[in-house]
């Protein structure tokens, strides 16, 4: 990735809280205009990394920043170019959505009331209600409105669809795609695999503060285990099948083979080519399988 194309750059990031190491050496680059999925279960270090990127936390070691700016040293300049939706929503309850949007407009500049109203309508959000009176989903919508209200080169979203209904989750994905179409980069942290799978170009998977896999959604799917079923018209070559390197738990029942492939399907296809195969089923792995696979395989 060309340096000029890199928006977010994280090198050897470590964050410790006393003896607890929340982030244990993360290296990530996010390119301009891409939607980058940051995937991992609760407590894997996603929010800590994001809070370092925003300059709220100071890295114990390593560097983190965006647009060539260091998050700790150049925090104000960096944050001028990004917007953010926090994972834990703590909004000022005494304000209405309208007042909060206006307040942020004063703090950031470049506030467009027409855009605010348009976004509110799109998110079906009543901005005249006090935030304390809103449901979790509607509070989340307020945070999303604030993130998309201002022109930002980088949109940082931490668990952005928590509490949203499926219709709004779909609308959110449309908004992310629209932002990308205008050249914005999106850093999308989530533990929702389907959300990342649908939205992201590339993904990093975190586990216990470390990146355990990084690549495109397709690459990660390629690394996942695939469930296969083969119906033979002749006698299945049991010994040869069991000898295949990437074959996990093969079960041959009469003329039917069921197994899991942990690697390339090519050796199996070559073996099957010399036999009469009636039908074959390969279940396409989704990111969830890739994700769980990585968690099963890596030591904590």
């Amino acid at each position: 990735m060309d340096r000029a194309d890199t928006v977010v750059q994280i090198d050897g990031l470590v964050k410790r809280y006393g003896k607890v190491e929340a982030v244990r050496g993360i290296d990530i680059k996010v390119a301009r205009g891409e939607v980058f999925g940051f995937l991992g279960p609760n407590g894997s270090g996603k929010s800590t990394t994001i809070r370092c990127l925003l300059g709220l936390l100071r890295p114990t070691a390593g560097t983190i920043g965006a647009f060539g700016l260091d998050a700790t040293r150049d925090g104000v300049a960096l944050r001028r170019r990004l917007t953010y939706v926090p994972g834990e929503l703590r909004l000022p309850d005494r304000l209405t959505g309208m007042e909060l949007a206006t307040s942020f407009g004063h703090l950031r500049g470049g506030f467009d009331p027409a855009r605010r109203d348009q976004l509110a309508e799109r998110l079906r959000l009543d901005l005249h209600r006090h935030l304390r009176d809103l449901s979790t989903g509607n509070r989340r919508k307020v945070a999303l409105l604030l993130a998309f209200l201002f022109d930002a080169e980088l949109i940082v979203l931490d668990e952005p669809t928590n509490g949203l209904d499926p219709l709004m989750q779909r609308e959110f994905l449309v908004m992310v795609r629209e932002a990308r179409a205008t050249g914005a980069t999106v850093f999308l942290s989530s533990h929702s695999l389907s959300e990342v799978q649908r939205a992201a170009d590339r993904v990093a998977i975190l586990r216990a503060g470390k990146v355990v896999a990084q690549g495109t959604v397709a690459e990660l799917r390629g690394r996942a285990r695939q469930r296969i079923e083969v119906w033979f018209e002749d006698e299945p070559p049991a010994a040869e099948l069991k000898a295949l390197a990437d074959m996990v738990d093969p079960v041959i029942d009469d003329h039917r083979l069921t197994a899991t492939l942990s690697g390339s399907i090519q050796p199996l296809l070559e073996l099957l080519a010399s036999h009469r195969v009636g039908s074959m089923l390969v279940e396409e792995p989704d990111l969830e399988e890739a994700f769980l696979d990585l968690y099963d395989g890596e030591p904590a």
Binding site: L54, L56, V76, R79, P86, E88, R90, R108, A143, L146
Partner: peptide
């Protein structure tokens, strides 16, 4: 309480 986080994530020292 965490209510300051969203403000401190804005371009303000």
């Amino acid at each position: 309480s965490g209510r300051l986080e969203l403000y401190l994530a804005q371009p303000i020292d």
